[in-house]
């Protein structure tokens, strides 16, 4: 019988892949599997005996019938949709502004990026000061021009206030992505449009915006994923209150897990959040993976 060695390539390839597989197992697959397991147990930290008590889908049923959970989903969706929409518009306006040449552009552009690089928890504390009903800058500004003070962190205003803070923090991200997109715009096509009779606004409407669609989609996909799991700056600003007015899904999970120490339930909440995030961002991700807009001169060009 002839000796036929297996191709060397196979064994060495496996060797190279092993560390990455190990790392993935350690930080991704094992925790995921464990959280999936805990989600079907009734484990409460204060009751060690419950650790391996299988309750099957009871946790999911508890969460899905909890009005506070549905309230957190509503808050999260409003926060995400309103935030991403406003940030897209503000980011686009800023990108179009900073594309122009004017004195001080470099300094201003750098300043615009600052909100994005500040730690979110600090952003939350900072805005708490700005929103303070008695000493805050906003109410000072409003009352000094004769307008009534706004109860920024009351149950009617709190969610709006949180969205305003998020728009302030995240619009620069859209601006950066869209500025990068504008760099790849075909300058000669813009000149051709000017010769064809397009005004500046028509150039933006007919050429620049269609060109920026894939970039907007990328930025929106990232922001939506981050917004759906928003925690830190909202926690610092409102603690999710008043009541449940600003309790996002992550804050709800936090309250369940670290106030009630109910590991089974928090694991179930986490899985529901993960599935929901996938469902909400799926259209955007599908759009990007299909390379839509790329064929029409977008990213792939």
């Amino acid at each position: 019988m002839r000796f036929r060695p297996r191709p060397r390539r196979d064994s060495s390839a496996i060797l190279f892949v092993v560390p990455a597989v190990f790392a993935a197992l350690l930080v991704l697959i094992v925790p995921l599997a464990m959280s999936a397991y805990y989600s079907i147990t009734g484990w409460k930290i204060l009751q060690p005996a419950t650790r391996n008590k299988i309750v099957w889908l009871d946790n999911y049923a508890l969460v899905l019938t909890d009005p506070a959970f549905w309230s957190s989903i509503k808050v999260t969706l409003i926060y995400t949709v309103a935030g991403v929409a406003l940030e897209s518009l503000a980011g686009l306006a800023l990108a179009l502004l900073f594309r122009q040449n004017f004195v001080g552009r470099g300094v201003l552009r750098t300043l615009m990026i600052l909100p994005m690089v500040i730690t979110p928890a600090v952003v939350g504390m900072f805005w708490k000061l700005l929103y303070d009903p008695n000493y805050g800058l906003y109410n000072f500004a409003l009352t000094s021009i004769g307008l009534p003070a706004v109860p920024w962190l009351s149950s009617t205003w709190a969610l709006t206030s949180v969205i305003i803070m998020d728009v302030w923090e995240s619009s620069p991200f859209f601006m950066l992505v869209l500025l990068a997109g504008l760099q790849t715009e075909d300058k000669e096509a813009v000149e051709a449009a000017r010769i064809d009779g397009a005004s500046s606004w028509q150039v933006v409407y007919y050429l620049t915006l269609p060109h920026l669609v894939p970039y907007l989609a990328i930025a929106a996909a990232f922001r939506a994923i981050w917004s759906l799991s928003e925690f830190d700056k909202v926690y610092m600003l409102t603690l999710g209150g008043p009541g449940d007015a600003t309790t996002t899904m992550s804050l709800y999970a936090f309250k369940v897990g670290f106030v009630g120490f109910d590991i089974g339930k928090i694991s179930a909440v986490s899985w529901i959040i993960a599935v929901l995030t996938l469902v909400v961002t799926a259209p955007l991700v599908a759009y990007l993976l299909r390379g839509r807009g790329a064929g029409s001169g977008g990213l792939r060009r």
Binding site: D186, E188, A189, E191, A192, Y206, G293, G297, R301
Partner: peptide, 11 residues
């Protein structure tokens, strides 16, 4: 005007 890069409107 006709440009070297064609300068067509891609979309």
């Amino acid at each position: 005007m006709v440009f070297q890069s064609y300068a067509l409107y891609p979309h």
